[in-house]
Amino acid sequence: MEKANIKRKSSEIEEEEIKENVNKKIDTTEKEKINDENKIGKSQEISEEEKKEEHFVHDVYEAIAPHFSDTRYKPWPVVDKFLNDLQPGLIGIDVGCGNGKYLGINKNVYIIGSDRCSNLIKICKERGYESLVADNLSLPYRSDSFDFAISIAVIHHFTTPERRREAIEEILRVLKKGCKVLIFVWAFEQDRKKYDEQDVLIPWHIPKKKYLNKKSLNKKDYTESEKSEHLVKYERYYHLFKKGELDDLVDQIKIGKVVETGYDRDNWYVIAERI
């Protein structure tokens, strides 16, 4: 038996070396092929959508992570119940877990959190939760393998109906047949506030002194007023779901069906089963 290579190293694990390996593995012809494919048709469009999500979702969460986290602590009752009703000993995932607010709700199940935002995952890890950095559209898990999943306040950040459907389908893919995912999205029909359109940019204000370090301050172009004030504004993209819209998305997916649907404090939710 080969002895484990357990040694202490500086945390700067050979990043360069890893990058090199990554580059080596796709040979150049393969790369060219992929590039050619990207030039034609739809892919151009996709990269625009990705850019939008990068700018108005990923970058924003990276920047606001600590402040966002400090405001996210109260579990929503429907999510709380879904998790606490699970049998002990199940394995599941929280896709887009944010600061990990749902990862510790039921200590009798094993739950892996993932998020696209590494700064939020750092917070999860610090809190002792099992978590990793991954993209909802391409989950790094085996198919047909989990007992449950949750997707809380995530799907509304994707910018097209296709991408929202694909994100849900990807979660269903890794669930076992007969197992369920709970999905929450922001509703167009809200009690407190009326919106004119479904695709909106929602501002997020951060107290500058407490949450922003020099590095992130330099990253953003500040307006003159922002420089002088103590709050910094970021904007996040949301697609606000109309009644039935989330159900319709799930209905389009061959491997899923809606088993429960509802509205809870400005959100639509669906429990979908893997079929």
């Binding site: 945390s11 593995k25 950095v133 993209d135 790094p140």
Partner: peptide, 15 residues
């Protein structure tokens, strides 16, 4: 041969 790094206990599974 794709390499997924693990740093500070966190696997990075992004492609």
């Amino acid at each position: 041969n794709h390499v997924y790094p693990i740093r500070n206990g966190i696997p990075n599974m992004l492609l």
